Every structure is written in C-alpha cells, then in structure tokens.
Simulated assay, not measured.
Amino acid sequence: MRPPPSPRKADRRHLQVSVLIDVDVGLMRAGVASTGQAVALAEHIAGYPSLTLAGVQGYGGHWQHIAGYPTRRDAVRAGMLRLTAVVTALREAGHRVELVTGGGTGTVAADLERDVLTELQPGSYVFKDAQYADALADDADGAFGTSLRVSSQVVSVNAASIVTVDAGLKAFATEGPAPRPAPGRFAGSAYAFFGDEHGAVSRPPGIEVRLGERVELVTPHCDPTVDRYDSYHVVSVTAIIAIDAARASR
C-alpha cells in the first residue's frame, strides 16, 4: 500500500485531502498532548491548500479492557475531558471541527454517556474475544457472546490428562489470556500453548475424545488473530468470506 502524498506533492497535483488531528487522551501512543499543540498543528494544516481539517480523533485503547463499568466510565470521562478541551480550543481559534471520532468496543456505553463523539469506533464488536468476555462479564455488554473462534482438530489422545490439538502459537495472537474452549463438549476444559503448531486441552471428565474431533477455541485477541488467516468460515450462513487485507500490515 502506497503512503498518502505529502502536502507539497498534493498541492502540486491539485489534490484535496481531509485530515484529522489525533489527540492523546491518555494512551500516550500517538497524538497531540496539549491544546497548544493541537492549535499549532491546525494552523500548519491550514497553510496547505490541499489539506482540509475534518476534525479530531481520540482513541482510548487502554480503557477497552478495564473490568467493571464504573471504573471504565471514569477513565472515559477523564479522556473525553481532554478531547473536549482540544475541540473547544480549535473552535475558539477559528477552525472548523465537524468530526469527533473515537470510542471502542469496551467503552460504547460510557462513550455515549459523554455526548462528545460524533462517530464511534467499536470495531471489535463484530467478534469480541476472551479479553472482552472477561472485562465485560458483569456488564450489560456481557450479553454479547464471542463469535470469532479458531477450529482445531485433535491430533493425539495418548496422554491421560490432556489431548493435543493442531492449533498452537501460530494460530492465535499470544498476548492476553490463553485461548479457551468454546461452549460444547470441551466447555470448562483448559487450553495451554504446546508449541508452534500444537495446543494442549485438558480432557473433559467422563467423555471419550477421538482422533480428528473438532475443538473450537475462543481467541485471546481478535484483531491480530484475524491477521493470521485468509478467510472466515461463516458457520450460520455456510459461506467463506475472503479477507481483502490479509497480512497487508506486514
């Protein structure tokens, strides 16, 4: 994927590019850290005929997996105050701020309470994962189950306490909690990474496990797990959907 043209190149080619000012709302990963920096950047943008300031973004990725709604809501409140201060400063300096985008899957309810954002970014809602299941377990959002699973196959039943499946370190994102068996025959069993290609699943008591049997596993972190595959198998619709951007971030 080619990078966007620089402002000077865009000017020479008579292009029009809408841009957002990224605001650090406490994550400290990127973005302007103060209202002064935001206004200075807006003035810089205004100096290029090819650029139009469309608005601001404030994404609190560090809030998304905070357990307990009250604590998560307080974190969102502090971050949205920072974002609101930037929006106010930009408007007072004469800049139009039409789009205020941010939010996430774990903070949707709290984001809506603040009435600051004009666009929400709850991308992981389509899948959820083990981290969200843990963080939202006691919230209304916990009613949404995880839909993304990795289907593994039993390749060894020789051990007394575990069976070996063909999904290991290469099958999942490895940060966060370990994968866990989905509801079904292996519900309540534990999973442990068993190498690059293999995983160990504790035997469900009183159930005979056969070679080739399928074990569905809930993913630890949905985003980078998706990046490891080329397609989804949509079970309820019996379809396979290509991932257009498969491994495009590499």
Rank of each mutant, 00 (worst) to 15 (best):
V100M: 04
I243D: 03
Y232T: 02
H65N: 08
A187P: 00
G168V: 07
H233D: 14
G61V: 04
A54F: 03
L51E: 03
G184N: 10
E208S: 08
V39G: 02
L27M: 14
H44L: 14
G142Q: 06
E197Q: 11
V234M: 10
A200E: 08
H65V: 15
A78G: 00
G176K: 02
H95S: 04
Y232W: 15
T101E: 15
N158Y: 04
R91E: 11
G184I: 09
F193D: 00
R77Y: 09
R13S: 14
T71E: 13
L20A: 01
I207F: 05
R247G: 10
F172C: 11
A54T: 05
R185D: 10
E213S: 11
V218N: 02
T101H: 11
T225K: 09
E197I: 00
V32W: 01
R73N: 08
I66G: 08
A10F: 06
Y229T: 06
P122T: 04
Q16F: 00
L27S: 15
L15W: 05
P204H: 01
T101L: 12
V19R: 03
G145A: 12
G184M: 06
A187N: 11
A30N: 13
S156M: 06
R72K: 07
L117H: 01
P205A: 05
R72H: 05
V157K: 02
T105Y: 02
A110S: 15
L148K: 04
P183F: 08
K170T: 06
D129G: 07
A192Y: 09
V163T: 02
H221W: 14
G31C: 05
V108M: 09
M28R: 15
F193C: 00
L148A: 01
E92M: 03
G104N: 08
G212V: 10
L99Y: 07
G60Y: 05
S236W: 06
P224G: 14
P3T: 02
K128Q: 13
A171H: 10
V218D: 05
V155N: 00
V165P: 06
F172Y: 09
A140P: 05
A33K: 11
A187Y: 12
F127G: 03
E208Y: 03
V23H: 04
S18K: 14
E175Q: 11
Q153Y: 02
Q37C: 01
D166I: 08
L99H: 13
A187H: 15
E216F: 08
V97I: 09
V97C: 02
V19A: 12
T174V: 12
Q121I: 10
R114I: 08
I241N: 09
V23A: 00
L90P: 04
D115Q: 14
P3N: 06
P177I: 09
A78H: 07
